[in-house]
Design a protein around this nucleic acid. Structure first.
Length: 892
RNA sequence: GGGCGGGUAGCUCAGUUGGUAGAGCGCUGGCUUUACAAGCCGGAUGUCGCAGGUUCGAGCCCUGUCCCGCCCACCA
């Protein structure tokens, strides 16, 4: 609604465009403005990436793809806003922004939702049903057995369900004003991402970095899948040391081991103790006899055995923990795997190879009471058996020597799992990372971690890496591992020489697609082939997000323009997974870093200082915050927190943000609502104000370049309130809008007020996109030709070009101090600040009086002094004023 | 057990290279002031976790220590 102000008399160099403030709403209607501007921004395409511009003009963001299951919470709003503020800054700096969005819809969370929602189970060998359509399962259907569907149908159902969530996520992010280019959207299970992940695998295979092996691997018995080191967490659980007496073959010696896992007794393959432990030195080299099963196992010394733990001597099982795996390998022990993939004890025949026993019949009788049981019941059962056994291996003494000793110990869990992990020997695919530690550390050091101490977490994790990356998962809704295996004439798959697809075929589904040189009819037939059923760890795909954006392997020119990215925003708990694997992949594929900066956001804590998370039921939904406070206010809260700092959820800060948006709205109305002539900025006070503004611009720019957006915001906000609205506007408005004085002086004030508003709006724009755009649109959009503030240039020295510096850089602060002294005199007298002072005397020391002279008229105008005297008071400190002899006009 | 971060006003947090402790909220006194009462002008509020040390001078540097949080760690 800009309109020309009418002043036909004045041949002014330039007439200020102004608005009719009366026509504007009384308050800023945030919800209405959000809808209006969102539509405008999407229509104008200001967030679009321009692929014709070169790399050096481009700022590339490796956006975190949120997990699509359920809803977004306020923690997402927090961290995504922080990244968006940085992105918006660089856009205003003229960068061509590549800011994609991804949906992480592949993986277990989605599978579980789909299983529940449709009441289905995926069964890899069920045939595909084209056109299968399912709706949410009814209560009646839920009572039936779940419907079995093929993997392809299951994946389709996953897509169907995630699409609904993705739309809701998209709408919320868009309202949050994330300046994403929505044309660059991917989902981690889509064809493009599957092809990239599989291409990654082909490249790793070609480089000898991907290998498969039959090896003990951490296994979740509920999900029935292998898991990687990074997905494992320690939890403290109550346990108990059971003391079990072992015999020694060919001797009447016996010894007692202590174990928290008596159910692994049938899996015992050895016994070890510290080499210097005098209690057991005589045993090394002999064979122990396990109780109940009478299996002879070697006794060997090991430095890893801790003499102070338990009884100092322990049984080695396949597999109780990672140390067992180590001993098993070093000592070339037998493999007696009694735990099945489902966590139940598998059938075993004593007396057969691998299960030699001195008394097979007794062993089989005991084992029969364990077979098929889950681990917890098996543990109870074996304790009962030990208690009731008539004799120990040596034939004397009770095998269970005493009551179990209760302890708290740490147990490894899959992070999403509910039962402890087991080590199971299975065939899995791995990526070779252990021997790349030094290179991984070097790459991590090349990256700027913000805050920098987050780099330490990466370093510590990398240094502590103890296993290669197990990338295969026995799941369904994931990216298929693109390999087939030949089946020999006897029907055995040949895992040694897998068949890989050609790169041009990607993505492939080995369960559906047929490898070159075979017919579909040869699937699972002797002399035919079989498809790999495993899928990749979801991180295998997620670790490719920079390459997913850059179309690695598909569009070399685009990849060159977009890789490595400039910044990866993410949170700290996934440094060991997402950040680590992404760095590892970029290293393996191209020997480069995937991005130059990582910005790590903190967590939102509830008032009890616990992490706010949907799963804990303490999360706040963002939408009602948008409604109550406005998006700008919510963004203000997010941008107030420094990177890496966990932040309390505090509604007070939303209120402060809302107040700020309102103030910008009102200041905008006021400054732009008055017509007048614009003249060059020449008056001392105006120049002094501009000089301070220029310093603010410098410091805010430095802060934003260093990702210290919260610092910048704080300085901008402080300046806005204390130097602009409450002060400079007060000092300048009588001159700018009064009829008195020379046109040049009035025009100087008007120009400086508008410059101040213009610059401050742009400084606030990355944090408060809606209100700044709103105010910008009234006048500045047409005046500058920049239709949107979000593509207007970031303030710089150029904005102040041609404006002479003030004679005295301190004159602005001096004017404030003087104005405050008069206001205080009014306050002390109980007089409103608006009351006219008919006369008063300003006292200060000589230097201060001299310095205030050039701006005293402005102060007097702002303080509404009709007349004033100055008087010397040498006692006062520099810059301090005293007001005396004030006479205020009667109340109007 | 190891590592990282934090402990500053009642609350949420700033505090650049060491130089007289800050903001907002809250509390409180005053003011309808022609942009804004969602406002303005004032006021009160601190053993900077604790103990040492370096220094003319420490919230900041060093040592020790206590709390809180996070990450890691070999489950006998």
């Amino acid at each position: 609604m800009p309109s020309q102000s009418a002043d036909p008399e004045a041949p002014a160099p330039k007439t200020a465009l102004s608005i009719n403030a009366e026509e504007l709403p009384k308050h800023f209607e945030s919800a209405e403005a959000e809808a209006r501007w969102d539509t405008a921004w999407q229509a104008s395409g200001i967030y679009h990436y321009d692929e014709t511009r070169p790399r050096e003009e481009t700022f590339v963001v490796d956006t975190p793809p949120p997990t699509v299951s359920g809803s977004l919470h306020v923690g997402h709003v927090f961290s995504y806003t922080q990244a968006d503020v940085v992105v918006r800054y660089w856009r205003m700096r003229g960068k061509n922004i590549f800011y994609p969005m991804g949906w992480d819809d592949n993986g277990l969370p989605t599978e579980r939702r789909v299983q529940d929602y449709f009441h289905v189970r995926c069964e890899a060998h069920v045939p595909y049903e084209p056109g299968l359509e399912l709706k949410e399962a009814s209560d009646a259907q839920r009572k039936e057995r779940p419907r079995l569907v093929s993997r392809k149908n299951f994946i389709e159902l996953c897509h169907q369900l995630t699409q609904v969530d993705e739309q809701a996520f998209h709408a919320l992010f868009q309202r949050l004003a994330l300046s994403v280019d929505w044309r660059q959207t991917y989902s981690t299970i889509d064809e493009h991402c599957r092809a990239i992940a599989q291409r990654s695998f082909l490249d790793l295979s070609a480089k000898g970095l991907a290998y498969q092996t039959w090896a003990p691997t951490m296994w979740d018995v509920d999900f029935q899948t292998a898991v990687a080191q990074a997905e494992v967490e320690d939890r403290t659980r109550p346990g108990a040391f059971h003391h079990i007496e072992f015999g020694v073959q060919g001797s009447d010696r016996s010894f007692v081991i202590a174990t928290t896992r008596p159910e692994l007794l049938p899996a015992c393959v050895g016994v070890t103790a510290h080499p210097d432990d005098a209690r057991n030195k005589d045993l090394f080299g002999k064979q122990a006899l396990t109780p109940l099963f009478k299996v002879p196992v070697p006794i060997f010394p090991s430095e890893l055995a801790d003499p102070s733990k338990g009884t100092g001597i322990l049984m080695v099982c396949t597999f109780g923990d990672q140390t067992d795996v180590l001993w098993w390998r070093e000592q070339k022990l037998a493999l007696r795997q009694v735990i099945g993939k489902d966590g139940r004890l598998v059938p075993v025949a004593y007396g057969s190879p691998g299960f030699e026993s001195q008394d097979p019949e007794l062993a089989n009788r005991h084992y029969a009471e364990l077979e098929g049981k889950k681990l917890a019941p098996a543990r109870e059962q074996i304790v009962t058996l030990l208690r009731s056994a008539s004799g120990s291996a040596t034939g004397k003494g009770a095998p269970l020597t005493q009551e179990p000793e209760k302890i708290e110990h740490t147990v490894k869990f899959y992070e999403r799992g509910e039962r402890p992990l087991e080590f199971l020997s299975t065939r899995q695919w791995f990526v070779r990372l252990l021997d790349k530690k030094q290179a991984l550390l070097a790459k991590g050091a090349e990256i700027d971690w913000r805050p920098d101490y987050m780099g330490v977490r990466y370093r510590d994790w990398t240094e502590g890496l103890s296993q290669d990356w197990c990338v295969s998962r026995q799941r369904y809704f994931g990216v298929a591992i693109p390999v087939w295996y030949r089946i020999d004439a006897s029907g055995q798959p040949n895992y040694e020489q897998p068949i890989l697809p050609a790169e041009s075929q990607l993505p492939v589904d080995p369960m559906l697609d047929v490898p070159a040189g075979f017919q579909a009819s040869q699937r699972d037939q002797p002399d035919g082939f079989t498809g790999e059923t495993d899928v990749f760890d979801t991180w295998f795909t997620s670790s490719m997000t920079p390459q997913i954006g850059s179309h690695w392997g598909k569009d070399a020119a685009r990849h060159a323009r977009l890789f490595p990215a400039d910044v990866r925003p993410q949170s700290h708990e996934i440094i060991r997974t997402w950040a680590f694997y992404t760095i590892a992949k970029a290293l393996c594929h191209e020997g480069r870093v995937p991005w130059h900066n990582v910005m790590i956001s903190g967590w939102i804590l509830d008032p009890d200082r616990k992490k706010m998370a949907k799963s804990k039921g303490n999360a706040v939904t963002p939408l009602h915050l948008f409604e109550e406070y406005g998006v700008d206010s919510v963004r203000y809260w997010a941008a107030s927190a420094r990177l890496g700092a966990d932040t309390a959820f505090d509604t007070q800060t939303f209120k402060v943000g809302k107040r700020l948006a309102t103030k910008l709205f009102n200041a905008g109305k006021f400054v732009l609502g008055h017509p007048g002539e614009l003249h060059p900025i020449t008056s001392e006070i105006d120049r002094a104000f501009v000089a301070k503004l220029a310093r603010l611009v410098e410091s805010a720019t430095l802060d934003l370049e260093g990702y210290r957006y919260a610092n910048a915001l704080q300085n901008i906000e402080t300046f806005f309130w204390s130097q602009f609205t409450d002060t400079y506007i007060e000092l300048a408005k009588p001159r700018a809008w009064g009829a008195q004085g020379r046109a040049e002086e009035r025009g100087s004030a008007l120009s400086a007020l508008r410059l101040g508003l213009n610059v401050l709006l742009r400084l606030f724009a990355p944090v408060l996109p809606y209100i700044t755009e709103e105010v910008w649109s009234w006048v500045f959009a047409s005046e500058t030709g920049q239709a949107s503030i979000h593509v207007a240039p970031w303030p710089s020295a150029g904005d102040f070009k041609g404006i002479a510096p003030p004679h005295d850089p301190g004159s602005f602060d001096l004017a404030l101090s003087c104005l405050n002294a008069i206001n205080k005199a009014k306050s002390d007298a109980g007089v409103s600040a608006g009351r006219v002072a008919e006369r008063l005397t300003l006292r200060a020391n000589a230097g201060t009086l001299a310095a205030i002279a050039p701006v005293i008229a402005d102060v007097a105008g702002a303080a509404r002094c009709l007349s004033y005297d100055t008087a010397l008071d040498a006692q006062l400190e520099a810059g301090v004023f005293a007001v005396t002899d004030a006479v205020f006009a009667a109340k109007a």
